[in-house]
């Protein structure tokens, strides 16, 4: 069987000649780890939040247009499906928020020891859960 690392990419060197270069193995050869899952989730939640920004724009534009368009948005957001969308958006937001702060700490050059990034990873998971549930409780309380 061929070594997966021999999966070759055709590129060009600085003289313009085509060359074959080794490619680092893709995700499926690695054993899953917390760090890997959180890294993927950070990107995935970012993309999800970008999609979720459509709801924010819809809400703002409808409110600016008047009471009738606003009532349509509120009707959707107030429905069970709307609550599910909003809660999903809340979880993605809190995760990206906590994981983003973890990235900022790394940017400051701290927390690269294995024990440290495993611990900070679990803190992100727990904080996301706690903040999401607290947000839901607050939302239900003031509804």
């Amino acid at each position: 069987m061929r070594d997966v690392r021999e999966a070759l990419m055709v590129a060009r060197n600085s003289d313009g000649k085509p060359v074959r270069r080794p490619v680092s193995p893709h995700l499926d050869v690695y054993q899953w780890s917390l760090s890997m899952a959180l890294s993927i989730l950070h990107r995935a939640s970012g993309i999800a939040l970008a999609a979720g920004s459509l709801v924010l724009v819809w809400w703002l534009v409808a409110a600016a247009r008047g009471a009738a368009p606003y009532a349509i948005v509120q009707g959707f957001l107030g429905s069970i499906f709307g609550w599910i969308v909003l809660f999903g958006w809340t979880v993605a937001l809190w995760f990206h928020f906590c994981s983003g702060i973890r990235h900022l700490v790394w940017d400051a050059g701290k927390g690269f020891e294995k024990a440290e990034y495993t611990q900070s990873g679990w803190i992100v998971v727990i904080a996301t859960g706690v903040l999401s549930v607290l947000t839901l409780i607050l939302a239900v309380a003031v509804r």
Binding site: A63, A67, L93, L104, A139
Partner: peptide, 28 residues
């Protein structure tokens, strides 16, 4: 922008909770 979004996100979430089910006039 990430650093700026840390306080802004907290403000925004609290604001949205306050505006849950708000009338159009209340939002304006």
């Amino acid at each position: 922008t990430a650093v700026a979004l840390v306080p802004l996100t907290i403000w925004f979430i609290f604001s949205l909770i306050g505006l849950l089910g708000a009338s159009h006039a209340a939002v304006v």
